[in-house]
Design a protein around this nucleic acid. Structure first.
Length: 378
DNA sequence: ACGTATGTGCGTCACGAAAC
DNA sequence: GTTTCGTGACGCACATACGT
């Protein structure tokens, strides 16, 4: 089967498979790769599709549905509570792990039996749907994910190390950077004035205002000093940082766009790093500064001059520029898409936990009613 | 210590849907 | 009809767990 045909074949099955995999995992754990369906494992797994409406929709639509239902549930729960602190229920996951679930007792018509009260359950882990509970919800969610993970992730360890050693270093936030309204750029890094030495011996100083000075010890002071000023005005493509490159030896100021994920600042050195290296360091905004002798790195696009583009070479450059722009946008879109997907999976996990609690309570109530209505004659 | 299996995240391509 | 956006799929690199 050709690649294209195979792709189509897989595509037709995968929307269902995604949800099926989430359903069929017996230990209640949903890994990203499974939900992502990014490998051949997906094609071999089978399961019953018990959430057909969600399975047919894209996960984004599913997330909206989930969030709507959650918001309804949360609002009902919130409006009906005039009494003391709500119950906290321990939800037992199929894997044996437990999470804390806040139960809001809602008894407009109390059950005839006393013990199991009908509850509308509010899960603290749904941080996405309740802003007021966001902080503790995020913590709970993270804790739960820690427990559910079979082994600590590389990024998590890095986060813990960063927070333990020096609280100044910003944590690598997996998903929160955008939600909290701080665009990932260098200005958000709490580095007052940092001096780095590159692998080529250059010194790079980052001032508080985001200005970068590059000095080349090999050359004399005047020629080696270059200034980079970074701004994030709306003019460049979204997610890109406009870098003004004012080399004093040059006769003018050049501008180029730097995609947010392409520039690497490391503690020890600033080096040319391929894109996957930047990826390995996490989602932290990173800056990649090429050595002066090298060309522009992949992803850095020279701003097109306002002049005409007629020669074949200029046309080719324009095509390349367009392609780079498209790739950059798609890169950012893919990141955002994955972030949403993770959010969606978290939401599903929480919903499963809550539904299990509800199911258990209903079963208990049913048993109790049975006992009351048909007492054994022994 | 080494090789292998598995999990995870990323960039890119392809393609359908929505926007223009 | 064209462009833009969102997302599934793929391949890759890296980290970690596990068996030898």
């Amino acid at each position: 089967m050709s690649k294209c045909g195979r792709k189509k074949y897989i595509r037709t099955n995968l929307r269902q498979m995604t949800m099926e995999t989430i359903e069929s995992h017996q230990d209640g754990r949903v890994t990203d790769s499974m939900a992502e369906g990014g490998s051949a494992h997906m094609q071999t797994q089978t399961g019953q599709n018990s959430i057909p409406t969600l399975a047919q929709a894209s996960y984004r639509r599913g997330l909206m549905i989930l969030q709507e239902s959650w918001e309804k549930k949360v609002s009902v729960a919130g409006s009906g509570t005039g009494r003391g602190s709500p119950d906290v229920t321990l939800v037992q996951l199929p894997s044996g792990q437990t999470i804390h679930v806040q139960g809001v007792i809602q008894t407009p018509q109390p059950s005839v039996i006393q013990s199991p009260q009908i509850q509308t359950v509010q899960v603290a882990t749904i941080a996405e749907t309740d802003e007021s509970a966001e902080s503790e919800g995020v913590i709970d969610s993270h804790k739960r994910r820690e427990i559910l993970s079979r082994r600590p992730s590389y990024r998590k360890i890095l986060n813990e190390l960063s927070s333990d050693v020096h609280g100044v270093v910003p944590k690598i936030e997996e998903e929160k950077s955008e939600e909290e309204g701080t665009p990932p750029n260098i200005a958000t890094m709490a580095v007052p004035t940092s001096i780095y030495q590159t692998s080529t011996g250059q010194y790079i100083a980052i001032a508080q205002g985001g200005a970068i000075q590059i000095s080349n010890p090999g050359s004399d002071g005047v020629q080696g000093l270059q200034a980079l000023t970074m701004t994030n005005s709306g003019a460049p493509p979204p997610g890109a940082t406009l870098v003004q490159y004012a080399a004093q030896s040059a006769d003018g100021t050049q501008q180029f766009f730097v995609p947010g994920s392409q520039v690497v600042v490391q503690d020890e050195e600033i080096e040319l790093a391929p894109s996957h290296m930047a990826a390995a360091t996490g989602d932290m905004p990173t800056y990649q500064i090429p050595a002066p002798t090298t060309g522009l790195p992949q992803g850095v696009v020279m701003a097109a001059s306002p002049g005409s583009l007629h020669s074949p070479q200029q046309l080719a450059e324009e095509a390349t520029r367009k392609r780079e722009l498209r790739l950059m946008k798609n890169r950012e879109a893919a990141k955002e898409c994955r972030r949403r997907k993770k959010e969606y999976v978290k939401c599903l996990e929480s919903r499963v936990a809550v539904l299990e609690v509800q199911n258990k309570k209903l079963i208990e109530e049913l048993e109790t009613l049975r006992d009351i209505c048909s007492p054994k004659a022994d």
